[in-house]
């Protein structure tokens, strides 16, 4: 049982691709404002996130949104269009049919919130990896989603950029957006999340508040994982 009122319910969710079972019979309720999905490499973290966001269609079970929520997602490697940083942020707004004076204003505001107003007119693909990830966060944030999924958002970044991205994620959460993120950085999970979903071989084997997970993991796979990952 999770924290808070459930806003996303997974009911016996499964995904099988080419005969390989990637997600196996996952049933849970997500109610926390900030959730981290943890687990060993290849356990199915990213796949579960994509199923939640609807990028993948489950081959079994279903997901329910008790109330429809607007969603966004930020990927490990930001996909930047070959245009300016500002136009990249505007792109999502344009897809929502938001017209230009407002669109520009909202995109600029998002860039300011990620601390990058100065690079608005620079070609996005020419920015550093950290800057690109922040533009991607701004692009998602500008749409003011009610849920934001993040897939290993700092995995390809240097420590300074990681810290900045983490700060932004916390700010997004503080603005009222629900966060679900995968990460292999336990410190980051501890700093950001309220609740942990632990996944092992395609099954979610533990769902606990973050402090409880890190101090008293219940499942044996989680215990082993923490032992291996903690120096």
């Amino acid at each position: 049982m999770g924290i808070g009122m459930a806003w996303l319910v997974l009911d016996r969710l499964g995904l099988t691709e080419n005969g390989v079972c990637i997600i196996n019979d996952v049933s849970l309720k997500v109610g926390a404002g900030r959730t981290a999905i943890l687990g060993p490499n290849g356990a199915g973290k990213s796949t579960l996130l994509r199923l939640m966001h609807g990028l993948l269609r489950p081959s079994a079970g279903a997901q329910h949104w008790p109330a429809p929520l607007t969603q966004g997602m930020v990927f490990q490697r930001p996909v930047m269009l070959r245009t300016t940083a500002l136009a990249n942020v505007e792109y999502g707004l344009k897809l929502r049919g938001i017209k230009t004076p407002e669109r520009r204003q909202r995109a600029m505001a998002a860039l300011e919130r990620v601390g990058l107003p100065a690079i608005a007119e620079r070609p996005a693909r020419r920015l550093s990896g950290g800057e690109q990830q922040r533009v991607a966060l701004a692009r998602a944030w500008a749409l003011e989603p009610q849920v934001l999924f993040l897939d290993e958002p700092t995995a390809s970044l240097d420590p300074a950029s990681s810290r900045e991205v983490e700060r932004i994620i916390r700010e997004i959460a503080a603005s009222g957006t629900r966060i679900v993120m995968t990460t292999h950085n336990l410190g980051q999970a501890r700093r950001i999340a309220e609740e942990v979903l632990f996944i092992d071989s395609g099954r979610v084997v533990e769902q606990s508040p973050v402090e409880e997970f890190f101090t008293r993991p219940r499942h044996v796979a989680a215990q082993r994982f923490l032992e291996e990952e903690t120096p």
């Binding site: 930001p78 792109y91 897809l95």
Partner: peptide, 23 residues
């Protein structure tokens, strides 16, 4: 490369095709 990002942003296939052409 772009598929998930564009779909996540809510681009239809037609819109995605136009975006990819320009990009």
């Amino acid at each position: 490369e772009y598929r998930e990002q564009l779909r996540s942003l809510g681009a239809s296939r037609l819109r995605a095709a136009m975006t990819l052409l320009w990009d």
